[in-house]
């Protein structure tokens, strides 16, 4: 083979591989390119992460962050007119719907856990919660230990369920457990006295209390069953989309823009009723924003 022929062949190969590289979209990005649409899964009542406003449009802290990702996908695919669909999910169907392709990205209040990482992947942690309990102030309960033998309510399909069972076994606490379909139901059962405590993520408890008719009548216990990171969910084994999500959200955190978005949802009046959760950034949240990561909880 002459040098000329060799050079020509090399050039050809380079062109072919470059073309292949440009085209080699995989996973969610490939799907978005082919179908011309991306579908964001949202929650309908996870205040202030992801919920419906009065017009029936999804809004919230997680929805704002996912908006950044959608913009990045549009830019990456050079498809400014990419169609963005929103599809409601619940705590029990969010993983199957993500896996079967009904949604491409879940933006709600989902705990990033090692168990879930066997099925799905997560973006950078955007909020850190403590699993705690809301009680009525007049119940006189201040610590977890005082809940032994009492009726506890939690929301079915959440990580609080196995956590509570484990705690009950370890501490020999002998709870009676009842389950609400959603946080508002669980809260009502507690407010009604049918359960003494509502065990759930502290920020969600704060949302329920702020929304109640007498916010001063409830308290969140100081203790914590454990801390959990929240993040957006995407399909597993989709490195291209995962990289895009990490880059986009990482940039929002590094630039400090995250503090503005945080302030908008956690320490200001929010729709639909103008309540203010008054939940300033704590140390764990500051740490998550300073060092973006997708570590799951055991």
């Amino acid at each position: 083979m002459t040098a000329f022929k060799q050079a020509a062949l090399f050039a050809c190969l380079t062109i072919v591989s470059a073309a292949a590289h440009a085209q080699a979209l995989t996973g969610t990005l490939q799907k978005a390119k082919e179908t011309g649409a991306i579908t964001v899964g949202y929650r309908e009542s996870s205040i202030p992460f992801s919920y419906l406003d009065n017009a029936g449009k999804p809004i919230g802290y997680a929805i704002d962050l996912c908006g950044k990702i959608v913009d990045a996908v549009k830019a990456e695919l050079k498809m400014p007119n990419l169609k963005v669909n929103y599809s409601p999910v619940t705590s029990s169907n969010r993983i199957p719907l993500l896996e079967n392709g009904t949604i491409d990205l879940e933006c709600g209040s989902t705990t990033n856990s090692v168990a879930r990482q066997k099925q799905v992947a997560f973006g950078p942690t955007y909020f850190v919660i403590n699993v705690s309990a809301a009680v009525k102030k007049d119940s006189g309960i201040e610590r977890f230990e005082q809940l032994k033998g009492k009726t506890i309510v939690t929301t079915s399909g959440t990580t609080s369920v196995p956590l509570l069972k484990k705690y009950a076994k370890a501490e020999d606490a002998d709870f009676k457990e009842i389950y609400g379909k959603d946080h508002a139901e669980s809260f009502l059962l507690m407010a009604d006295g049918r359960a003494v405590a509502f065990v759930m993520d502290d920020i969600l408890l704060a949302g329920q209390i702020a929304n109640s008719k007498d916010p001063s009548g409830y308290r969140i216990l100081a203790g914590s069953l454990r801390s959990e990171p929240y993040s957006m969910m995407l399909r597993k084994n989709d490195p291209q989309f995962k990289a895009l999500v990490d880059k986009t959200i990482g940039a929002v955190m590094k630039s400090g823009e995250i503090h503005q978005i945080y302030k908008k949802w956690f320490t200001s009046a929010i729709p639909p009723k103008g309540i203010n959760l008054n939940f300033p950034e704590n140390a764990a949240n500051k740490e998550a924003f300073a060092n973006p990561n997708d570590k799951g909880v055991e």
Binding site: K176, G193, R194
Partner: peptide, 14 residues
């Protein structure tokens, strides 16, 4: 009914 809701075993009440 409310009193029963508070005092009864929750499963029985359901």
């Amino acid at each position: 009914l409310k009193r029963m809701a508070v005092e009864m075993d929750p499963t029985r009440f359901q």
